[in-house]
Amino acid sequence: MIDPRLQTLRVLHEQGTVTATAQALHLTPSTVSQQLRQLSARLGLELLEPAGRRVRLTPAALALLGHADALFARWEEARADLAGYADGVAGRLRMTGVATAITGVLAPAAERLRREEPRLAVEIGEDPGENRFDLLLAGRADIAVVIPTPGGPPPGDARFTQLPVLQEPQDLLVPAGHRFGGRTAGGVTLAEAAEECWIRAGDPADQHQLLLAACAAAGFTPRVRHNAVDWSAIAALVAHGCGICLLPRLAPVPDGYRDRVVRVPLRGEPVPVRRFMAAVRRGSERRPPIARGLAALRAAAGERA
């Protein structure tokens, strides 16, 4: 009931290029260009202007986007109201999140939903390399469990509703025989590790930013010498004495390294934590499938607390 070409304009503003917009919406670049030309002709306004090899939105297009965000939020609210007349909860719920979010809350939430809402088909994806807010905007996900990072949508972004789900403590992962290895009961402060060599562990977009921020708050800059994303590779680097790293509480130590590395809790102030937020398209949180999904996530997080 809202001109779908407005959605194309919104995604173009987020992605920056026609090619990336086409990929996000599963369209061809020529279809994206045609839709935007049609929208421009319908409004009698220029919406795009050349900027080198790319295009940028005109002031008129940026003004239109503000109205489009409000329209889509109201449309989600209308769908939520209409869904209240349906008999029970049915349909499809698509959720996305990082691996530790799947382990900690998404998979348990899916199990709960299978028991409580058998007519609701739940799909979960890790979607590596994807911007999960883009997946929401393009309609390819309904709930995204995200870790707030600099440069991400702020809490007041008109396109999304963001709700707290879980705070995950961080531990130190050190090799067996390390000077911290015998302090698993009392823990160590992050400042005590200022002279250590560090591994950039996990997703650089969030986990590494957490390391930098936590170390800065503790009064030092970490000496980073190695990096890996997969936790098995990270555990191998630690086990072979290449450095230490932050390990999210929800991330398990890989089986092959449990006797070669030690998980040491952090204490004192500040203790680094990773915050998980559930993000949805603004207004959609009242739709029964999404509302049930959010409730299941909160219940799963409560069991972790």
Rank of each mutant, 00 (worst) to 15 (best):
A239I: 11
A86P: 10
M277V: 02
A301V: 07
A138R: 10
R292E: 00
R183V: 01
D171G: 06
L6C: 14
P128V: 06
P118V: 06
L172K: 03
V280G: 14
V105W: 09
D230G: 08
D255K: 11
T28G: 09
T17E: 10
A101W: 09
I244F: 04
R56Q: 14
E126W: 11
A185V: 04
L135R: 01
G293V: 11
R292C: 04
P204H: 09
F72S: 13
T103D: 10
L247H: 08
G88H: 07
L120T: 02
G88V: 00
L211V: 10
A216Y: 04
P4C: 02
H178K: 05
A138C: 15
H240S: 09
A295I: 01
M1V: 15
G91W: 13
L250R: 07
P59V: 08
R119Y: 07
H226Y: 11
R10T: 03
E76I: 03
A176W: 02
R119K: 12
Q35V: 00
R258A: 07
G84K: 01
A73L: 12
T189N: 03
G91C: 14
R54D: 02
P155D: 06
Q15M: 03
Q209F: 09
G125M: 01
L190H: 05
L212D: 12
P108H: 04
D206Y: 15
R140F: 06
P265L: 13
A110D: 12
T8H: 00
L246Y: 04
C242A: 12
P272T: 11
R140Y: 01
V271P: 15
A99C: 03
H240P: 00
P222L: 11
E77A: 09
F276K: 08
Q35D: 13
W75E: 15
F72M: 06
A295S: 14
V11M: 15
Q34A: 12
Q207P: 03
E117P: 14
T161F: 01
A228P: 15
R92V: 06
I124Y: 10
G88R: 05
E130D: 14
G293M: 05
R292I: 09
T21N: 13
G125R: 15
T189R: 12
L93K: 03
A279L: 01
L297V: 10
L246F: 07
I2G: 02
L6H: 07
